[in-house]
């Protein structure tokens, strides 16, 4: 290291003491998840003499709740890493759910597999359309994504309610019900679907050039533009991906409950956004991982289930999740301060 002539004035050398704090802050969501699991388990053991963790039913309920959050949060993670937001996913989910349900209802109770699959594709198409409009607004017309997707949030909501005639579209179809409530290798279908999509999104974000460009876009748009990347096309693809995973959430909803509701995704929007930020993403973009979002989704699902399990009124979950979001932002800020860069 003797030829290190230019490195002499490195002012950013961090004292060794903070590196422990840093890794603690990086892993805080893992620790937090373990902490609340431990808390609820101890509560269950001591107060009610039962168990939370060691009953398959509980674990299944928690993971299905987490999958719902994940299906909205996966594509959203990539959008947020790129420095944008997608609020319309709430109703991309509902739109997909309603379109799928309507087609199956029109086809009748004895509609076969082919019809069900076509109905699902149509539902996904409806969601992807919302995503394409978002992409067009943000990438081509330069509308800030918060406003643009708030607009399509309303439009998709209206469109879903209009095609559904303002009501929940209930269906009676054995194939659909079998899909939504069935098992694959002993695991509930929603969980398997969410797991597969999680792997795909993780691969996309972490291991592909597309993912690298997404991170770079979130940090500094000029860096990717000058590197010759087609930023507009990239943004459009991101918003379509986000609507697409949310749309799959809608298909799962319709299949599980044998009904398509326009507001299928609405209550989950806040949780999905929260999961992404709890998982380490930053509002300014450039940060966040799929692994983080998965942990975030599980933290919320455990809080939801755990509070009800403890016999508290379910409304407490809103308070608890709200508090966790604030903690997540505080952790993010102190991380920034420790690591330098933006502050």
């Amino acid at each position: 290291m003797t030829d290190n002539t230019v490195n002499g004035s490195n002012t950013n050398t961090k004292p060794g003491g903070t590196s422990f704090v840093r890794s603690l802050l990086n892993a805080w969501s893992w620790l937090f998840l373990i902490l609340i699991l431990g808390f609820f388990e101890i509560y269950a053991q001591t107060q009610t003499g039962s168990t939370l963790l060691f009953r398959i039913y509980n674990l299944q309920a928690i993971s299905i709740a987490a999958s719902q959050i994940l299906l909205l949060g996966l594509g959203l993670t990539l959008v947020i890493v790129a420095g944008h937001i997608d609020l319309s996913i709430a109703f991309s989910t509902g739109f997909a759910a309603v379109v799928m349900a309507l087609i199956i209802r029109t086809a009748g109770a004895d509609a076969g597999w082919v019809t069900v699959i076509l109905a699902m594709l149509a539902g996904l198409g409806a969601a992807a359309l919302v995503g394409a409009v978002n992409g067009w607004l943000v990438a081509i017309l330069n509308v800030p994504s918060f406003i643009g997707t708030l607009g399509t949030y309303g439009i998709a909501r209206g469109a879903a309610l209009i095609v559904a005639g303002g009501a929940t579209v209930s269906i009676r179809n054995d194939h659909t019900r079998a899909f939504g409530n069935g098992d694959i290798l002993g695991l509930p279908v929603p969980l398997v679907v969410a797991a597969v999509l999680t792997l795909i999104c993780h691969y996309l974000l972490k291991h592909t050039r597309f993912g690298a460009h997404t991170y770079a876009l979130g940090a500094n748009r000029a860096s990717v533009e000058r590197a010759g990347v087609n930023v507009k096309k990239h943004l459009i693809l991101l918003f379509i991906l986000s609507a697409f995973t949310a749309g799959i959430g809608g298909l799962i909803y319709t299949s599980r409950f044998s009904a398509g509701a326009a507001n299928a995704g609405e209550p989950i929007l806040l949780y999905a956004v929260a999961a992404v930020f709890i998982g380490g993403a930053s509002l300014t973009g450039g940060q966040g991982t799929i692994t983080g979002t998965v942990i975030g989704a599980f933290i919320i699902a455990v809080i939801q289930f755990g509070l009800v399990f403890c016999g508290l009124p379910p409304y407490w979950q809103f308070v608890a999740v709200g508090l966790v979001i604030i903690v997540a932002v505080l952790v993010d800020q102190s991380k920034d301060r420790l690591m330098g860069g933006k502050s």
Partner: peptide, 26 residues
């Protein structure tokens, strides 16, 4: 025009990233 959140390697290669294949996946 650096991407501050990426390592020097990715910044060096930005837009022309080096890719290997694992089970045919880049």
């Amino acid at each position: 025009a650096l991407a501050d959140n990426l390592d020097p390697g990715l910044n060096l290669y930005l837009g022309r990233e080096a890719v290997k294949h694992v089970l045919r996946f880049p």
